[in-house]
């Protein structure tokens, strides 16, 4: 995944008051939406024209075989009269944004409130609702993140205090960041499944693995961040290694820790989603794969939207925690 960057080197809009920062972002989002709506037309043109032809509308060229070999834009310009259903077709290749939102509403609020298996009628979350799937994914994400972050921080403390650990483990930790670890995911799932471990644990193992290395690298950097002057001060107090750790190294590593935690939790979510691909037992990843098997694109997009929202919320939560902690510690105004 992404490398742990130094806190403070991240690009920001810097200097602008909050209310001035919003309009450009909103403008960009609106522009993207507009592009999306336009793109829906050529992406779905073939299916829409076939449907229109069945409904008795004149379509040029009339044969579906000819249409198959033509470019999408050419078809759009020759059939501008028959494109009315582009934004409301049943099985679109690219659903329009409002179709995704409708699917999202149907599979969350509507399913829970009005569905036969929803929480209102049956007392438990419906296994067809995205709320249920999101919780399944979130469980694995949190468990994995917790394990990964704790192990990572522990290993970092070991690395900083032991020269042997540093020299033997650190190069491998760095190399392992260049390996596409997610590719291991299905194997870990299947192997653990074959020895009878299933459900939450295998996914959490993948999440832990993915969130482990950013934390190690960031924490090592952070624990080493006190400068020579500060270390010397501790020495003049004849402080023990333990108190140097708790009173100097750990506090000064906090900004680095949070920077890598933000990366780690995003990676952990990706790990949980990818981990759900091989075994279809619920979760956003399983939902996406099911959607791709049955050609339900709106379902994939809705699951994707939920995953994106989760990622944003998780990163935002860590950032909020970071602000509060740093403010408490007097590191941030």
């Amino acid at each position: 995944m992404a490398e742990a960057s130094d806190p403070g080197t991240r690009a920001s809009a810097g200097g602008w008051p909050r209310w001035l920062r919003l309009p450009p972002v909103l403008g960009m989002v609106l522009a993207l939406m507009a592009i999306w709506y336009v793109a829906v037309v050529p992406m779905n043109v073939k299916e829409v024209l076939t449907a229109a032809e069945r409904a008795g509308v004149e379509v040029s060229p009339p044969s579906a075989v000819d249409r198959r070999d033509m470019g999408n834009w050419a078809l759009v310009f020759r059939n501008t009269h028959a494109l009315g259903n582009s934004w409301s077709s049943d099985r679109p290749k690219l659903p329009a944004p409002h179709q995704v939102l409708v699917e999202l509403y149907d599979s969350t609020i509507d399913e829970e409130l009005n569905g036969r298996r929803g929480i209102v009628r049956s007392g438990t979350l419906s296994n067809r609702s995205l709320v249920y799937h999101a919780l399944v994914t979130l469980n694995a994400t949190f468990l994995g993140f917790l394990i990964g972050a704790l192990l990572g921080a522990g290993l970092a403390v070991g690395i900083v205090h032991s020269r042997v650990m540093d020299m033997s483990v650190m190069p491998w930790a760095i190399v392992s960041q260049t390996i596409p670890i997610v590719a291991l995911a299905p194997m870990i799932i299947v192997v653990l499944y074959s020895i009878g471990v299933q459900g939450l644990i295998p996914k959490a193992v993948i999440s832990a693995y993915l969130s482990f290395f950013p934390v190690v690298v960031g924490m090592v950097k952070g624990l080493r961040s006190p400068d020579a002057m500060q270390m010397d001060l501790m020495r003049t107090y004849s402080a023990s290694t333990a108190s140097v750790l708790t009173k100097l190294r750990l506090p000064s590593s906090i900004p680095y820790l949070f920077a890598s935690l933000k990366i780690a939790i995003a990676a952990s979510l990706v790990g949980a989603i990818v981990g759900e691909l091989p075994v279809q037992k619920g979760g956003l990843g399983a939902r996406m794969l099911a959607g791709s098997y049955y050609g339900q694109t709106a379902q994939i997009w809705a699951a994707l939207l939920v995953a994106a929202t989760l990622a944003a919320l998780l990163v935002y939560a860590i950032a909020a925690l970071e602000r509060r902690t740093l403010r408490r510690m007097g590191m941030m105004p």
């Binding site: 920062r21 450009p24 972002v25 990818v274 959607g291 995953a307």
Partner: peptide, 24 residues
């Protein structure tokens, strides 16, 4: 000012999830 926050946001998203759509 419009694209940078959006780009930062997108860079943290699980974009791998678009794989089934793009394969389709």
């Amino acid at each position: 000012r419009g694209l940078l926050p959006l780009g930062n946001f997108m860079a943290a998203l699980p974009i791998v999830g678009t794989a089934p759509i793009l394969v389709m």
